[in-house]
Amino acid sequence: MNKIYFLCTGNSCRSQMAEGYARIFLKDKYEIQSAGLEAHGVNPLAIEVMAEDNIDISHQYSKTIDPHYFKTANLIVTLCGDAKDRCPVIAPPTHSIYWPLPDPAQATGTPEQQLQIFRQVRNEIKQRILALASNP
């Protein structure tokens, strides 16, 4: 089976949300994992906004890049510029996609304003995962 790897800086928000959606919408196409350049722990607001869409990522955990999985992945999706710039070299025939998404963990303002940023990023990730699912 093909492998997909979602990467971001801390594997706490964007890549965790992408993994959560992929486990629903891409499970028949890919083995699915996510990781970060660092492991910051899964952000509670990411868990909360995913639960709003009936996706449970509370069992997922933050991890750093596994060199073996990275080398054997068919598709690597980087979800931030930091991961794109600092990611190990992606060798052919691995395909890579860059999704330049803002880091919701950097959101400021009231708790509701922060949640709104998380929801916006979540919705963008969901649309991109659905687009991947619709490709043959």
Results as ranks from 00 to 15, higher is better:
residue 1 M to T: 04
residue 3 K to H: 12
residue 5 Y to D: 05
residue 5 Y to M: 10
residue 6 F to W: 07
residue 7 L to D: 07
residue 8 C to K: 13
residue 9 T to H: 04
residue 9 T to V: 11
residue 10 G to I: 00
residue 11 N to K: 05
residue 11 N to P: 00
residue 13 C to V: 13
residue 16 Q to I: 14
residue 17 M to Q: 05
residue 17 M to A: 04
residue 19 E to F: 08
residue 19 E to R: 00
residue 20 G to D: 01
residue 20 G to Y: 03
residue 23 R to G: 08
residue 26 L to H: 02
residue 27 K to M: 00
residue 28 D to K: 15
residue 28 D to Y: 15
residue 31 E to H: 11
residue 32 I to V: 14
residue 32 I to M: 12
residue 32 I to P: 04
residue 33 Q to H: 15
residue 34 S to M: 09
residue 34 S to W: 03
residue 36 G to R: 09
residue 39 A to T: 01
residue 39 A to S: 03
residue 40 H to T: 05
residue 40 H to M: 12
residue 43 N to K: 02
residue 43 N to L: 00
residue 44 P to N: 01
residue 44 P to C: 02
residue 45 L to H: 11
residue 45 L to M: 15
residue 45 L to V: 05
residue 46 A to L: 02
residue 47 I to H: 13
residue 48 E to F: 06
residue 49 V to I: 06
residue 50 M to T: 02
residue 52 E to C: 03
residue 52 E to S: 05
residue 52 E to A: 10
residue 52 E to M: 05
residue 54 N to T: 08
residue 56 D to Y: 10
residue 57 I to E: 04
residue 58 S to C: 09
residue 59 H to E: 07
residue 59 H to Q: 09
residue 60 Q to W: 07
residue 60 Q to M: 03
residue 61 Y to H: 08
residue 61 Y to Q: 04
residue 61 Y to I: 07
residue 61 Y to V: 01
residue 62 S to V: 06
residue 62 S to Q: 01
residue 63 K to S: 09
residue 64 T to A: 14
residue 64 T to F: 13
residue 66 D to H: 02
residue 67 P to M: 01
residue 68 H to I: 13
residue 70 F to N: 00
residue 72 T to W: 07
residue 73 A to F: 13
residue 73 A to K: 11
residue 74 N to A: 06
residue 74 N to H: 12
residue 74 N to S: 14
residue 74 N to L: 06
residue 76 I to E: 02
residue 78 T to C: 15
residue 80 C to N: 09
residue 80 C to V: 04
residue 80 C to A: 00
residue 82 D to R: 15
residue 82 D to A: 12
residue 83 A to L: 05
residue 84 K to F: 00
residue 84 K to I: 01
residue 87 C to A: 14
residue 89 V to R: 10
residue 94 T to D: 00
residue 95 H to N: 12
residue 95 H to D: 11
residue 97 I to W: 10
residue 97 I to C: 04
residue 101 L to M: 13
residue 101 L to G: 09
residue 102 P to I: 10
residue 102 P to C: 10
residue 103 D to Q: 04
residue 103 D to Y: 08
residue 103 D to R: 11
residue 104 P to F: 11
residue 105 A to I: 05
residue 106 Q to C: 12
residue 107 A to C: 07
residue 108 T to W: 08
residue 109 G to R: 07
residue 111 P to Y: 15
residue 112 E to P: 12
residue 113 Q to E: 04
residue 114 Q to W: 09
residue 115 L to A: 14
residue 115 L to I: 12
residue 116 Q to V: 09
residue 116 Q to A: 13
residue 117 I to G: 07
residue 118 F to Q: 15
residue 118 F to A: 11
residue 118 F to G: 08
residue 120 Q to L: 01
residue 120 Q to F: 02
residue 121 V to T: 01
residue 122 R to K: 07
residue 123 N to F: 05
residue 125 I to M: 10
residue 126 K to H: 12
residue 126 K to I: 01
residue 126 K to F: 13
residue 127 Q to V: 03
residue 127 Q to R: 15
residue 129 I to W: 14
residue 129 I to K: 14
residue 129 I to S: 15
residue 129 I to N: 15
residue 129 I to L: 10
residue 130 L to V: 03
residue 133 A to N: 03
residue 134 S to W: 13
residue 134 S to N: 08
residue 135 N to K: 14
residue 136 P to H: 11
residue 136 P to W: 12
